[in-house]
């Protein structure tokens, strides 16, 4: 551990960058009351403790936090923030810390997914023809069910009422969930469409603290809306 407290306290970048919630409380206002830690489901797991993290930020120990596992243990559920009497943006703090980590140190599949999404328009790196094939295949199967005869999925339909984005698992391991959506749309008479490219609804830049990539992915969907002249967006993720 060992902390270099003989020298001055470092200024924390996290403190400056982490955006504020409606009750604007700078992190310094932390009372150390422990409300967050008491309610956090992850307190004690591998040394995780939201109060400790806030404290370290206030002491300017960004580097230590960024280099640890701690920012990734948080589930970002927000239970801490909900009860924090000082209104500290704990979730935003965690996310900002994540954003400060070198991209190649981002754990698990998250960064890979982000890169794939930027490159290919979806987290799986699924090519466009494969995507279309899967969609049409599942739609055809659904059309065999009574009451849904003749069902097709409109793709890239200009002027539709609703643009629907998809979680990548829907075209990977959980095709059946596609059917739930479509049945509802069909019975409701909804004029929906899905894009053939950049259809990814899960924006992993949220989890990796990567605002830039988030912007790009969201930007693509906005671009669909403009191009296809669709007014309404359903973005379930």
């Amino acid at each position: 551990m060992g902390t270099d407290t003989e020298t001055k306290r470092k200024q924390s970048a996290v403190k400056e960058k982490a955006p504020l919630r409606p009750v604007e409380s700078p992190m310094d206002i932390c009372l150390g009351c422990g409300t967050c830690s008491a309610g956090c489901a992850m307190t004690g797991v591998d040394g995780f403790d939201p109060r400790k993290i806030v404290r370290k930020v206030l002491m300017g120990r960004d580097a230590e936090l960024v280099g640890s596992k701690l920012p990734w243990i948080c589930t970002m559920c927000g239970k801490c923030e909900h009860a924090c009497p000082m209104g500290i943006n704990i979730v935003n703090m965690i996310r900002t810390l994540r954003g400060m980590v070198d991209r190649d140190k981002v754990p698990g599949m998250i960064q890979k997914g982000v890169e794939l999404c930027l490159e290919t328009g979806n987290n799986l790196g699924l090519p466009a023809e494969d995507f279309t094939f899967i969609i049409e295949d599942v739609a055809a199967e659904m059309a065999e069910e009574p009451g849904f005869e003749g069902f097709t999925v409109p793709i890239d339909k200009k002027g539709a009422n609703l643009l629907h984005t998809l979680h990548n698992k829907l075209v990977n391991t959980q095709n059946e969930d596609l059917v739930h959506w479509w049945k509802i749309f069909h019975m409701a008479g909804e004029d929906f469409t899905i894009p053939s490219e950049n259809w990814e609804g899960v924006n992993w830049g949220l989890f990796s603290g990567d605002d830039e990539s988030m912007k790009i992915v969201v930007g693509r969907i906005v671009e669909h809306m403009d191009r296809l002249e669709i007014k309404n967006l359903m973005y379930p993720e």
Binding site: M1, T3, T5, E6, G32, G34, R51, K52, R55, K56
Partner: peptide, 12 residues
């Protein structure tokens, strides 16, 4: 000692 961190503290 900083009881929140559970660490000793030394300040000049």
């Amino acid at each position: 000692d900083d009881p929140f961190l559970g660490e000793p503290v030394q300040i000049k």
